[in-house]
């Protein structure tokens, strides 16, 4: 019985972990000039138009954006750089994660 309960607990834990990751992956980009809500909104609007983008979070303290991608989609660094530049800002760095 204990073995069954342990197995269920592990499965639940694994399931929770899987849900917290974004199936399409996440992009982290440092952005120069990101100093106000208006700048944040500009980036939200620009990335929000992309089919590949599920959601975007803006961190004004760290001057970064976190872009969650839809499953089966990608955005290479060249496109990310172009989107940030088109919005009126400069890229400091880009990295990819789960």
């Amino acid at each position: 019985m204990n073995k069954i309960l342990s197995t269920v607990a592990i499965l639940i834990a694994l399931s929770t972990t899987a849900h917290s990751a974004h199936p399409g992956g996440t992009i982290y980009a440092g952005v120069n000039g990101l100093v106000c809500d208006f700048c944040a909104r500009a980036l939200e609007k620009t990335f929000g138009k992309e089919e590949a983008v599920e959601s975007i979070n803006v961190d004004l303290d760290e001057k970064t954006i976190i872009v969650h991608l839809n499953e089966g989609h990608t955005l290479d660094s060249k496109i990310v750089t172009q989107l940030i530049t088109d919005a009126g800002y400069d890229v400091r760095n880009i990295s990819y994660g789960e």
Binding site: N32, G33, V35, K63, G88, Y89, R92
Partner: peptide, 12 residues
């Protein structure tokens, strides 16, 4: 027309 923008880490 925006002629020039200076984007810095902490300022614009």
């Amino acid at each position: 027309r925006l002629m020039k923008r200076w984007n810095r880490t902490e300022s614009q």
